[in-house]
Design a binder for these strands. Sequence first.
DNA 1: CCTTTACTCAACCTGATGGTTGACTATAAT
DNA 2: ATTATAGTCAACCATCAGGTTGAGTAAAGG
Lengths: 111, 111
Amino acid sequence: MTVMDMPQLDTTFSALSDGTRRAIVARLADGEAPLSELAEPFDMSLTAVSKHLRVLSDAGLVEIEKRGRTRHCRLRGAPIKEAVDWLSKYEGFWIDRFDALARHLAKEDKD
Amino acid sequence: MTVMDMPQLDTTFSALSDGTRRAIVARLADGEAPLSELAEPFDMSLTAVSKHLRVLSDAGLVEIEKRGRTRHCRLRGAPIKEAVDWLSKYEGFWIDRFDALARHLAKEDKD
DNA sequence: CCTTTACTCAACCTGATGGTTGACTATAAT
DNA sequence: ATTATAGTCAACCATCAGGTTGAGTAAAGG
């Protein structure tokens, strides 16, 4: 299973690469909210925020439930966990090239 | 400090939203490599891979060192760590709405 | 019933992304 | 000196992303 075969990560990282969407995620961590409330802090049209929510929803990061005339949104952790799992394999890297060599040799040792 | 004020996360997540670039990151975890070696597994021009490396470099995820006529690339963990730090705050979320309510009340309790 | 609220949808614009090719530069090898 | 290697650069193209506006729909409230 190569990295290329994880298209879910494409959409997750892509969704989180926008500050507006990260702000929405952060807001939803405090509890679910309807779209209009989520849109309120932002200096953009409701349509624009609705599009952002759509992106988050398509990525599986947010669940949107139709309730009367409002749409209530809440956070889903699963894709985020998947992203953390992938990232965690690489967060320990630092610049020193000799260290990189050491890691390389250590890995060959295990093979 | 709001989420919007972290433009580094924009470039980090954006850089990682492409499968080719994630594959490069994964490859570099095994040790540094020149561009031509990095490009070899991919069915695209060297120019295209060079552009991907440029994106990773601009995001601070990869360091490129000019050495003779080759460019040697190695991974940098710092931006990845920052991404993990941000994500970790949200990976625990699941779907149950009552749980979201509980978290919300717990947070109000602390305020 | 009529109006307001909370959206959605379609069309449009602009700029960024991901890829190509062809020409070029610089280092290394013969 | 010539050639091959490693990579950059500029131009181009198609598609996508983030925003807008204007019109339309569906539920709630007077």
